[in-house]
């Protein structure tokens, strides 16, 4: 029963990603509108995967990745960045601070599902 945390400020994207995650068997989607909201949600539920946008108000996706990787409790959670930032340096930066994968918008659902299935821990 994987718990997937979607961190995205756009309600449209959140709904679209939630829709896509319905294809992951028995998964539960938890939504957060920014990094701070995500950390709050993570403290109250066990999270198996994070799908995070980069450009968000309050706390952006890169800061969230740094905080998650710096926390011994959360540091192994796989993180997939989903962003409009398509430049190679943005991708490298996100991966260097600990994101597992980097996907640019507009997303292709089958690509996202492939990544989720690759990084979702076995047995969840």
């Amino acid at each position: 029963m994987p718990n997937i945390l979607i961190v995205e400020d756009s309600p449209t994207m959140r709904q679209l990603l939630s829709f896509a995650m319905k294809r992951i068997p028995n998964s539960t989607v938890i939504e957060a509108s920014d990094g701070v909201d995500a950390l709050k949600k993570m403290s109250s539920a066990k999270i198996d995967m994070i799908l995070a946008d980069i450009n968000m108000p309050v706390m952006d996706g890169l800061k969230l990745v740094s905080l998650v990787r710096g926390n011994p409790v959360y540091k192994t959670i796989p993180i997939i960045m989903i962003t409009t930032e398509g430049a190679e340096e943005d991708r490298k930066r996100a991966l260097s601070i600990g994101a597992n994968a980097y996907l640019t918008k507009p997303i292709q659902t089958h690509e996202l599902l492939k990544l989720v299935n690759t990084y979702l821990p076995a047995g969840t």
Partner: peptide, 14 residues
């Protein structure tokens, strides 16, 4: 705002 979100996120306009 929703129109902007759709055009950015689903179409990929900058």
């Amino acid at each position: 705002r929703i129109v902007l979100e759709i055009v950015i996120n689903l179409i990929g306009a900058e």
